[in-house]
């Protein structure tokens, strides 16, 4: 790793992000949703599952989506090749991009949670959970971005990520019943685990989310190896 090269890629990607209308709209979506949600009810406390819907939307629509769009655009316009042929390593490139995505995600999530009520997240356990969840979505974005050859194709990939991992708490609105297999499977998903963490104060959900994050990291590694060995 080389800090100057990481800094150069961060600076370039941040400037490019600020000039890309498609990417700029992504962090606005969770903020708008938060404004709407915060006006629901008569001053009642917002349920934790609703807060995690905002977290899920932010991480899927901003973290994963921005990352895969940035990677896919580099693939589509062949600029990634220029970076790979430079002395920057693949890690330098990924870290530089991830820092931009982390910054934009942090700003979007902070504004959204301030609007909704940030108190439930002001504990070490909740912050660790959010960091692991961020890494999980980031790895998914990198992995998919590596094999997505065009920006257009990312819209097809972002849907399953959003609905499976971002909107998981919404499964409760489907009235499937407590014994439904879908509900039981969804309970093991990362966001549901963090909701469970708030209910039980247990550290086990953090462990489960960590396993999801390791799985996403492995997925990214496999995508990377496959891309690098293709002739």
């Amino acid at each position: 790793m080389h800090t100057q090269r990481i800094g150069a890629i961060f600076e370039k990607d941040l400037k490019d992000f600020m000039k890309n209308m498609m990417l700029l709209m992504m962090p606005i979506a969770p903020i708008l949703l938060s404004i709407m949600y915060s006006r629901l009810g008569d001053g009642e406390e917002i349920p934790i599952s609703m807060l995690y819907i905002i977290v899920g939307v932010t991480f899927s629509a901003v973290t994963s989506s921005s990352m895969m769009t940035m990677m896919a655009e580099e693939n589509e316009k062949k600029t990634l090749r220029g970076l790979m042929l430079s002395p920057a390593s693949f890690m330098d490139i990924i870290i530089g991009k991830s820092l931009v995505v982390a910054l934009i995600t942090a700003v979007s999530l902070a504004i959204s949670l301030f609007l909704m009520g940030i108190e439930p997240f002001l504990s070490a356990q909740a912050i660790i959970g959010l960091v692991l969840l961020f890494l999980f979505f980031l790895f998914l974005g990198i992995g998919i971005g590596l094999f997505a050859k065009s920006i257009a194709s990312t819209s097809a990939y972002i849907m399953p990520v959003m609905f499976l991992f971002g909107f998981t708490p919404m499964i409760e609105f489907l009235a499937l019943g407590e014994d439904s297999i879908a509900i039981k499977v969804a309970d093991a998903f990362p966001i549901m685990q963090l909701i469970n963490m708030h209910d039980t104060n247990s550290w086990v959900p953090i462990g489960v989310v960590a396993l999801w994050t390791i799985g996403a990291a492995l997925f990214t590694y496999i995508c990377f190896k496959k891309e690098r060995t293709d002739d």
Binding site: K15, K19, N20, K77, K78, T79, R81, G82
Partner: peptide, 9 residues
């Protein structure tokens, strides 16, 4: 022929 630049920058 595959070299490329960042259009928005």
């Amino acid at each position: 022929d595959n070299s490329s630049l960042y259009d928005r920058l």
